[in-house]
């Protein structure tokens, strides 16, 4: 059987991470941050996200009422600060519950097979 092409793995990996990005962004925005520091904070925790994905995502989440933003001057530059809205906090809790449930299900499916194989 031919080996799986690296780009197939890369595409699936990106797809998997994309689903988790919203959760990571919402998790980081429990405290107010602006785009660049948010990006660096996510990268420092192993969730690298390029600016072309992050900013449109932030705008979409703000349009959906999950985030609120405010333009403020800091270090002599105008920056847009984002934080979770009240609804956003509630949504984050719901998504975390869902995430844990998915994690448990996957552990049950993949973990059982792995242990069975071992």
């Amino acid at each position: 059987m031919a080996p799986i092409a690296p780009d197939i793995f890369e595409n699936l990996r990106m797809e998997l991470r994309r689903g988790c990005l919203v959760l990571a962004v919402l998790g980081e925005l429990g405290e107010e941050q602006y785009g660049y520091t948010l990006r660096k904070a996510l990268a420092a925790r192993g969730m690298e996200i390029d600016e072309g994905t992050l900013y449109p995502l932030l705008r979409r989440l703000e349009a959906q009422g999950v985030l609120v933003s405010e333009w403020r001057e800091e270090e002599k530059r105008n920056k847009r600060f984002y934080r979770l809205s009240k609804d956003g906090r509630q949504l984050l809790e719901q998504l975390l519950t869902e995430w844990k449930s998915i994690d448990a299900s996957l552990e049950g499916i993949v973990g059982r097979k792995r242990h069975g194989a071992a």
Partner: peptide
């Protein structure tokens, strides 16, 4: 409609980097 807003944020992000 969103030109100025997006550009301001993009400019800040690039300058910060």
């Amino acid at each position: 409609g969103q030109r100025q807003d997006i550009l301001a944020e993009l400019t800040d992000d690039i300058r910060a980097e």
